[in-house]
Amino acid sequence: MAIYQFTQQQKIPVALDTIWAFISNPENLKEITPPHMGFKIIGGTGQGKIYQGMIIRYIVKPLLGIPLQWVTEITHMKECEYFVDEQRAGPYKLWHHQHKIEAIAGGVLMTDIVSYIPPFGFIGRIANSVLIKKQLQQIFEFRTKAINEKFGPWQD
Rank of each mutant, 00 (worst) to 15 (best):
K134D: 14
I139D: 03
Y92L: 08
A2P: 15
E31Y: 10
V108P: 02
L16R: 06
G43P: 09
K78M: 02
N28G: 08
D85N: 00
K40I: 06
K145L: 13
A146E: 00
I41Y: 01
T72N: 01
L16T: 06
A2L: 09
G65C: 04
E86M: 02
E102N: 11
P91M: 08
Q5T: 13
T72I: 07
G53D: 09
E73F: 00
L63S: 12
K133P: 03
P153K: 15
D17P: 03
F39K: 02
N28I: 13
G46V: 09
G124W: 01
S24G: 05
N28C: 13
T75S: 14
R57D: 14
A103T: 15
Y92F: 14
F83W: 07
W70Y: 13
P91G: 13
Q87M: 11
R143T: 00
I12N: 08
L68T: 01
R57Y: 07
I50N: 14
P35T: 05
I132L: 02
F120T: 15
I66W: 04
P153Y: 11
S115W: 03
P26K: 06
A146L: 01
F122Q: 10
F120Y: 15
A103H: 08
I139N: 10
M110T: 04
G124E: 07
Q87R: 02
S24T: 06
A105W: 02
Q137C: 03
I74S: 01
T144M: 07
D17Y: 06
R125T: 05
F142A: 10
